[in-house]
């Protein structure tokens, strides 16, 4: 009897049918693949992307420059006469080649002018493209998606 029962189980293979039912269930489930270049990924708010500096609010205090472990930030304050009225830096350099995205420059900034953007596609063709200055650095590629809330140091969705 036992042998016949085992043979019947071999013939009807209930466990195989169960497996096939499971794969069919997964066929109907939503897929986890993101079609990356077509569909933009949804990044968390605190993504440490490329550094973004708001030159207009920067007071040239050079705290970020001192905090940077790699020394990839250079801030040049304006001449003294100008500094009395206009504290915006004369020049601001970021060497993206050395940047660790560690965020140590973001914490000491008294005005919250430097922060990480959500820009993560950092590949460039030339080394020169990795060097950012006052003109190129504040260029916010994410302007269409969010704006930085300076008071609470959080991004705000538009």
């Amino acid at each position: 009897m036992n042998a016949i029962g085992r043979f019947l189980q071999m013939v009807t293979f209930p466990e195989l049918l169960k497996g096939m039912a499971i794969t069919t269930k997964y066929l109907a489930k939503p897929k986890v693949t993101e079609s990356y270049p077509d569909a933009r990924p949804v990044l968390p708010y605190r993504t440490k992307g490329r550094l973004h500096v708001e030159i207009e609010t920067c007071i040239s205090c050079r705290m970020c420059e001192k905090a940077c472990p790699e020394g990839c930030i250079r801030v040049y304050p304006p001449p003294k006469e100008v500094f009395k009225t206009d504290k915006r830096p004369a020049e601001f350099y970021l060497n993206q080649e050395h940047c660790l995205h560690c965020g140590l420059c973001v914490d000491p900034c008294p005005t919250g002018s430097i922060h990480h953007s959500q820009e993560f596609e950092l590949a460039v063709v030339h080394y020169d493209d990795l060097l950012f200055d006052k003109e190129t650095l504040p260029y916010d590629l994410d302007q269409k998606r969010f704006r930085w809330n300076l008071l609470e140091n959080v991004p705000v969705k538009k």
Binding site: T23, Y26, L27, K29, P30, K31, V32, T33, S35
Partner: peptide, 11 residues
């Protein structure tokens, strides 16, 4: 096969 495995397959 991709759809069965929660992927999209070659597209």
């Amino acid at each position: 096969l991709g759809l069965f495995q929660s992927r999209l397959g070659p597209n």
